[in-house]
């Protein structure tokens, strides 16, 4: 089976996000006063082959833990979509 994994990487909540702070200030300057917090992250799209949904999920999690994120400062979430 073929899958598309949509992976979102962000800094952990406990880690200060300087880009998010800068964007938050800019939004406030543009009068978006309702904005409480901004976190800037990364979106990574991976197309892969896997035997099942569970196999695809396991592969994606291994990739995230080994390379795609730095677990010291980052966290991730993902969605899987069967593409064929």
């Amino acid at each position: 089976m073929k899958y598309k994994a949509s992976i979102y990487v962000t800094l952990k909540g406990s880690v200060l996000d300087p880009q998010g702070s800068a964007v938050s200030k800019a939004l406030h300057a543009l009068q978006y006063e309702a904005v409480d917090d901004v976190r800037v992250g990364k979106y990574i799209e991976v197309r892969l082959r896997a035997a099942s949904d569970a196999d695809a999920g396991q592969q994606v999690e291994r990739m995230c833990e080994q390379l795609l994120t730095n677990p010291v400062i980052e966290t991730y979430s993902y969605t899987l979509e069967a593409t064929a």
């Binding site: 200060l16 300087p18 800068a22």
Partner: peptide, 8 residues
Amino acid sequence: ALRRNESL
């Protein structure tokens, strides 16, 4: 770990 400089 080394993050982006606080000043960006």
